[in-house]
Design a binder for these strands. Structure first.
Lengths: 151, 151
DNA sequence: CCTGAAATTCGGGGGGC
DNA sequence: GCCCCCCGAATTTCAGG
């Protein structure tokens, strides 16, 4: 992991479909060593995979909600059960155990507020062990950047 | 945007490097129409681009912090200025204007807690107009899923 | 709108420097 | 460890159904 590797990753973050020639030109190498470096980073687990950046709005997913959750009990059992339920809800795209005033932060993506109300009522409120939850709608996204690689 | 399109997107979300043959096999089409559909979705802005999934830990980025920010004034000027400053801080990878008890939620990625302390002291606390901020460290990520496409 | 084949470009892997 | 070249495979185009 030297400067060139980070530079390659930086290019791939912006466009994972860039050809090895383009990447080589951007970092100052020929395609072959670029390919070798990328492969090594894939094997090392630095690169976990390749994905597509989708526009949620264009897909009819207009609302993103951040849900802060506090649990009643912090037993291993409760935590595990909670994780399993979250895994089964496709609209929950992220779930983090966090420090601070509440226990979890979820990111939920839905079609509209009615959709969210239904999810809340039929899925989240049914989960045993939730002491409190607070929903916060994303009104506008000011920034959505790649990981800081320092290149 | 029919069911086949969503199925193609679902495959691409999991692996954007899948060949058109593989995609075709997964959705029940030959490579050509898959390519045509993908191209159309790129032009329609449904597909915004392709990127790489990186392992932050393997890159020495061990800590993710969620920062909840409340501003003093809600004038257009303050909001715009705040957005500009955030744009200039690489460690701030996401910034959302949100509804609820606070105004903004930032996602900050740093090397370690010392790095975060420095960022807080040298950059965030220097921003005029912040009334209050509260940091919440991500202790564990339970789920990180693709957008729900319903296929 | 899909199939199938043709041309072109690119990924993937050697040997020499 | 990088550059250059080769081969197989992929993308992309375009006929026809």
């Amino acid at each position: 992991m030297d400067r060139l590797d980070r530079k390659i990753l930086s290019v791939l973050q912006q466009d994972a479909r860039a050809s090895l020639q383009d990447i080589g030109a951007a970092v100052g190498l020929s395609p072959s060593p670029c390919w070798a470096r990328i492969r090594k980073m894939e094997e090392a687990g630095v690169i976990e995979g390749y994905t597509v950046r989708l526009n949620p709005l264009a897909l009819g997913l207009a609302d993103t909600v951040l849900v802060m959750v506090t649990l009643d009990s912090h037993s291993d059992n409760t935590l595990e059960k909670f994780g399993e339920v979250l895994a089964s809800i496709p609209e929950v795209v992220e779930a983090h155990l966090v420090s601070g005033e509440y226990d979890y932060l979820l990111r939920v993506v839905v079609k509209d507020t009615r959709d969210y109300e239904r999810l809340l009522r039929e899925r989240l409120y049914k989960i045993k062990g939730i002491r409190h939850s607070q929903s916060s709608f994303v009104l506008r996204t000011l920034k959505k950047a790649d990981l800081p690689l320092g290149v």
